[in-house]
Simulated scan of single mutants.
Amino acid sequence: MKQIWRQQRWLWMFFCLTLVGCASKSVREGAYQKAQWETKAMVKDFRQNKTQSLNIDIYAIKNERARFEITALLGFQVASLVMSPQEISYIIYPQKKFFSGRNSERAVENMIGLPLHPMNLTAIAFDEPVRGRGWACAVDGQGWIASCENKERSMVVHWLNRSEGAKKVVITAPQFEMQWQFEAPQTEVQFKSELFTLKQPEGFKAIQIN
Rank of each mutant, 00 (worst) to 15 (best):
I88W: 02
S100A: 07
G143T: 14
H117S: 01
I112G: 06
Y90T: 02
M83C: 01
C137D: 14
A107E: 05
S147W: 08
G113W: 02
S80V: 03
R131T: 14
F126W: 10
S147K: 14
E87S: 09
S89R: 03
E128R: 15
F76G: 04
E105V: 12
N110W: 08
K97H: 02
G113S: 04
W144Q: 14
V139K: 15
V108E: 03
A138Q: 13
I112V: 13
F98I: 05
I88V: 05
N120S: 11
A146P: 07
R133W: 12
K96V: 00
Y93C: 02
G143V: 15
S89Y: 00
V82Y: 02
A125F: 08
G143N: 14
R133T: 15
M111V: 12
K97E: 09
V139W: 13
K97N: 05
M111W: 08
M111G: 05
P94M: 08
Q86W: 05
E87G: 05
E109K: 10
P118L: 08
V78C: 06
P94N: 09
A146E: 13
V82R: 01
E105S: 11
I145P: 03
L121G: 05
I88P: 02
V82C: 05
D140R: 13
G75L: 06
D127F: 02
I124Q: 01
H117W: 06
C137G: 15
L74S: 08
L116H: 04
N120A: 10
G134D: 13
V139H: 13
G75I: 08
P94T: 07
G143A: 13
A146R: 13
P129G: 09
W144L: 12
V139R: 15
D140I: 13
G141V: 11
P129K: 11
E109P: 07
I91V: 09
G75V: 09
L114R: 05
P129M: 07
